[in-house]
């Protein structure tokens, strides 16, 4: 039971993020919603990589008595998460800078008013 809590957290975070993106009209809040969804996915990836009692696969710094490779954790999910975080930062930076430019041109961040392009 205790081990499935992260998975429930993932689902709740995704729902919260989606709610922010669908029902919040402020562009910054939408960006925050996107970041929450991204954190949820990252949490999911990290949770997948968790092994009880496993150690990081750094060969030069292994505690004694660890069997190679059974006692170690496969670092792939962590690597995926790191990559995903880096990409997420780039996306967030781009999104916020676009928000700044939208504010300069439109004088508002309300997505209802930022729609010259429609139909």
């Amino acid at each position: 039971m205790i081990y499935s809590i992260p998975f429930y957290t993932v689902i709740i975070l995704i729902l919260v993020g989606m709610y922010a993106m669908i029902f919040r009209r402020n562009l910054i809040k939408m960006a925050i919603g996107l970041t929450i969804v991204e954190s949820a996915v990252n949490l999911f990836l990290v949770t997948l990589g968790y092994r009880e009692g496993g150690v990081a696969p750094i060969y030069t710094n292994l505690p004694s008595g660890i069997k190679i490779p059974e006692g170690m954790v496969l670092p792939v999910p962590q690597a995926l998460t790191l990559t995903s975080i880096v990409i997420g930062v780039a996306i967030l930076a781009l999104m916020l800078s676009l928000s700044i430019m939208i504010y300069r041109h439109y004088g508002t961040l309300d997505s209802k008013k930022v729609r010259r392009l429609k139909e």
């Binding site: 993106m21 996107l34 969804v37 781009l94």
Partner: peptide
């Protein structure tokens, strides 16, 4: 320098990144 371009880019970015997630 036009508002339209930034708006289009923002829409593209938010939609694409949610799809990528």
């Amino acid at each position: 320098n036009t508002g339209d371009a930034v708006e289009g880019a923002f829409k593209f970015l938010i939609i694409s990144s949610i799809a990528a997630l």
